[in-house]
Write a protein that binds this DNA or RNA. Structure first.
Lengths: 147, 147
DNA sequence: AGCACTTGTATAGCTTGGAATGCAATGCTA
DNA sequence: TAGCATTGCATTCCAAGCTATACAAGTGCT
């Protein structure tokens, strides 16, 4: 029996993520954004002043990846970093006005991508799909709560 | 209303793919493989002697990505490329014995990753999950059949 | 034969992701 | 309080994905 790509959850997940990324990329490029910054922005739009460590915990991204992403975001004028007055190691991350102004159009773009991607599914199927993804993610995630 | 990451199919797909990739990577690293070569190997194990173009069509990978992946695979002794005798532009890709020998352990590793990832789901849910991913992928794919 | 067009690959340059490592600031403890 | 462990972040190096571009080999047309 050969291993079948289209029966493999892992293969499909990879393919799915690439398709989503391609489309989101196309839609937010006009805004001057790229996909890697998106998750961080989503968190920061809810409330900034976080440390890198807090962002990492929220997003399950490895620390060097986040450091790199934040460096690009600072370069591109999306964030500013200021040292934490109480902890000389930490920096707190603040959105610029530019980044704040992008919340509306950027989330609209993401919503549009999701809508387009799920257009082939019924409302029930969409809910099931998202719930199952959440369940698998939860099962795979390293922080098992209990230790 | 704020955009909620955990209700976003795109966000979840990205997270899911990263979790799968991390685990597969860990499991096949001991074999001397890395995840980027995996899809190409799956196709070539079914039958080699393909051109780069044929691999791309099978996997929905952009051409420069595949060129780059094949270069790494050749460097790592997984494939050899020989010019097509009938078309001076094309090269046909052949697996080395090394690559052939890895089919068993590598697909076993991928199967184990899938099993682990879907462990939180019932048999019915697993089938649903895979079917829904396939459906969304099909809906997002560029080649609409009709043109 | 000559020319434009198409096709198959390669290259350059970027982003996004990770592992491994280094280092400074902090915290803990004997 | 000196020494050690921990924490927060940066850096290095690599893989994997993309866009844009280049280029050589084939194809078709005149």
């Amino acid at each position: 029996m050969t291993f079948s790509r289209d029966d493999s959850a892992g293969y499909l997940a990879n393919h799915l993520a690439r398709l989503f990324a391609r489309e989101l990329q196309a839609r937010i490029k006009p805004l001057g954004l790229s996909i890697g910054t998106f998750p961080a922005l989503l968190v920061l739009w809810e409330g900034d002043g976080l440390t890198q460590r807090e962002l990492i915990a929220a997003l399950d991204i490895e620390q060097p990846t986040m450091a790199n992403t934040l460096a690009r975001m600072e370069r591109d004028g999306l964030i500013q970093r200021r040292r934490d007055p109480h902890d000389g190691r930490a920096q707190r991350i603040w959105l610029t006005e530019t980044a704040r102004a992008l919340e509306g159009p950027a989330t609209a773009a993401a919503t549009a991508v999701n809508a387009h991607a799920l257009a082939a599914l019924s409302a029930t199927e969409r809910a099931t799909f998202v719930a199952l993804m959440r369940k698998v993610v939860a099962g795979l995630q390293p922080d098992d709560g209990a230790v």
